[in-house]
Simulated assay, not measured.
Amino acid sequence: MTTKYLLAISGNDIFSGGGLYADLSTYSANGIHGFVAVTCLTAMTENGFEVFGTDQTVFGHQLNSLKNVPFSGIKLGLLPNVAVAELALDFVKAHKDIPIVLDPVLVCKESHDVEVSALRDELLKFFPYATIITPNLVEAELLAQRPIKTLEDMKAVAKHLHDLGATNVVIKGGNRFSQEVALDVFYDGVDYTVLEYPILETNNVGAGCTFASSIASQLVNGQPVKEAVRLSKDFVYEAIRHSDQYGVKQHYEKD
């Protein structure tokens, strides 16, 4: 069997729950060899959870080192600033014939000091090259610049993001509308599919990264987009359900 190579352009989560750790673990679980171009480091400081973008020159060298690897797909996660995003976009343009999954992490849940407006404009440039984008509700609101209060709003925003150039959109709704059911909406430009899963009590982080990485893995393994989304929801749900519930929340709450 030919080895498949999947690139994660993503950040280093100091608590190892999300980012490149979730990406590589998911690739491995799907029988794929993973590569990483690291976009940032993170750490807890006196100011809370902070993101430190990789030096632009260093990040460029990382991508240049990988230019001849025969990747079967690319998954993009946290792009901390415009400079890093521009380099990532150039790399994506050079690989536009393979599956591209964009997880547009505009706002870290722990910090809101990202250059949101400038990054939004930059992320929109990825849309024509992305096979699918996977924003959560906050990110979808920021990208579309309109609020989401209901399931119908989710559908309308998914269509708006499609109109902005995204071929396929899945908005991760979580439990905003219900404490019993997590709702996600998938839109392919024609049909809406609502995915419902029971809420799981957990402190785990990295579900969004794992979801996007699983979609990328499924696409590389030959699944159509809608089926890749469904299989990835199953994968994430089961991963959380069988986790040890360690979670990193306790680290944030110390001191």
Rank of each mutant, 00 (worst) to 15 (best):
S10L: 00
S10D: 02
N12S: 05
N12M: 03
D13K: 08
D13G: 09
I14Q: 13
I14A: 13
S16G: 11
S16N: 14
G17W: 11
G19L: 06
S25R: 08
T26R: 13
T26L: 05
Y27K: 02
S28F: 07
N30C: 08
G31Y: 08
G31C: 08
G31T: 10
I32M: 02
A37P: 09
C40E: 13
C40K: 13
L41Q: 15
L41W: 13
T42V: 08
A43N: 12
M44A: 13
E46T: 10
N47C: 15
E50M: 10
F52D: 03
G53N: 05
T54R: 01
D55Q: 01
Q56R: 02
Q56C: 03
V58N: 02
F59H: 03
G60Q: 02
Q62W: 02
Q62G: 04
S65V: 01
L66Y: 01
L66C: 05
K67H: 00
K67I: 02
N68S: 05
V69H: 00
V69E: 00
F71V: 01
I74M: 02
K75H: 09
K75R: 09
K75E: 04
K75T: 03
L76P: 05
L79T: 04
L79G: 03
N81S: 02
V82G: 03
V82I: 11
A83L: 10
A85H: 10
A85M: 08
A85S: 12
L87M: 04
L87K: 01
A88P: 06
A88H: 01
L89E: 05
D90N: 12
D90E: 08
F91Y: 11
V92E: 04
V92M: 04
V92I: 07
D97E: 06
I98T: 08
I98E: 06
P99K: 09
L102S: 07
D103N: 02
L106Q: 03
V107G: 09
C108W: 04
K109I: 05
E110T: 06
V114F: 10
V114G: 14
V116R: 04
S117H: 13
A118D: 10
A118M: 07
L119E: 07
L119V: 04
D121W: 06
L123S: 11
L123K: 14
L123I: 10
Y129C: 12
Y129A: 14
A130G: 15
I132G: 04
I133Y: 00
I133R: 00
T134R: 01
T134M: 00
V138A: 15
E139Y: 09
E141I: 03
Q145G: 12
Q145H: 11
R146G: 14
R146H: 12
P147M: 13
K149C: 12
K149Y: 15
K149F: 14
K149Q: 15
K149P: 11
L151I: 09
